[in-house]
């Protein structure tokens, strides 16, 4: 990998993203709408749930509103970054292909896209974390933001994988919607998990560890290192797969 080429590709990718003003606006507005709806509609009655990723599986009782603020903070970061990553790979694919024919390696291009994605993961996670904290006081704000970064990483890498694997825009969106909706937007809700018949399935889904880390950081003093570490391992798996597929689909024969 050539550092100069990597830097130029990173800067250009970032510029292209920052010049899409409607996208930037939606990145700000969508989490605000998600959390605003929670604020308007959810009660503050305390509800018990288990923190399943901790060894002793403690039961905590938290106001319903607080649980949903955290749940939707995680969901909005997962949703936004998976779509952003998908778009990064799929958008203008033919131009990226031309760059490969001109001498860029697919690895350099994917790495620069990942670096641009990481910038957005940090920005979106920090924004959503601070916004959540305004609406509901989070116990450990920076750990909570770090947990949001982990869901951003896991689902960002899932978006890269989906984009590497699928060429069609609509098909890519549907693949993202399928997993993100089921996993982040439904099964990882701690209240649903509590009553689920098969909790084992939920534990193997990509958003399990980031969701658990966010709940632990938001409401308790327990450590989050195991949950966050496991989340990054999951994300790294997606990243490795996407790198292999991207390389295979973009490589040239000269």
């Amino acid at each position: 990998m050539n550092p100069d080429r990597l830097k130029i590709s990173f800067v250009m990718t970032l510029r292209m993203l920052l010049r899409r003003h409607i996208v930037l606006l939606l990145l700000l507005v969508i989490p605000a709408i998600f959390l605003g709806i929670v604020s308007l509609t959810t009660s503050d009655r305390p509800l018990p749930f288990r923190l399943a990723s901790l060894e002793e599986e403690p039961v905590v009782s938290i106001p319903e509103e607080g649980i949903h603020f955290v749940f939707f903070a995680v969901a909005s970061v997962g949703f936004l970054l998976s779509f952003l990553a998908l778009n990064l790979i799929q958008n203008n694919r033919h131009v990226t292909r031309r760059l490969v024919l001109c001498g860029y390696s697919p690895t350099e291009l994917l790495t620069s896209k990942l670096a641009a994605l990481l910038v957005f993961i940090l920005l979106v996670s920090t924004y959503v974390g601070l916004l959540t904290n305004i609406l509901y006081e989070i116990d450990h704000l920076w750990l909570f933001i770090f947990s949001l970064v982990s869901i951003g990483f896991v689902y960002g890498c899932y978006g890269l994988l989906a984009g590497s694997l699928i060429r069609g825009e609509l098909e890519g969106i549907l693949v993202i919607v399928l997993l993100v909706n089921i996993d982040v937007g439904w099964l990882q809700n701690p209240l649903f998990y509590e009553g689920a018949q098969n909790q084992e399935v939920i534990r193997y889904l990509p958003a399990y560890f980031p969701s658990q880390a966010s709940l632990i950081a938001a409401f308790t003093d327990y450590g989050v290192s195991h949950a966050i570490g496991s989340a990054y391992l999951y994300g790294a798996g997606f990243l490795l797969l996407s790198l292999l597929i991207y390389y295979k689909t973009m490589k040239t024969y000269r």
């Binding site: 050539n2 100069d4 080429r5 130029i8 250009m12 292209m16 131009v95 001109c102 860029y104």
Partner: peptide
């Protein structure tokens, strides 16, 4: 045959990007 360029990048940025690709 088809114009194969990034709509969000300028003419100057395209030259820089492709110049880097060519080494």
């Amino acid at each position: 045959q088809r114009v194969t360029l990034y709509p969000q990048l300028s003419v100057n940025e395209h030259f820089s990007y492709f110049g880097a690709a060519y080494g």
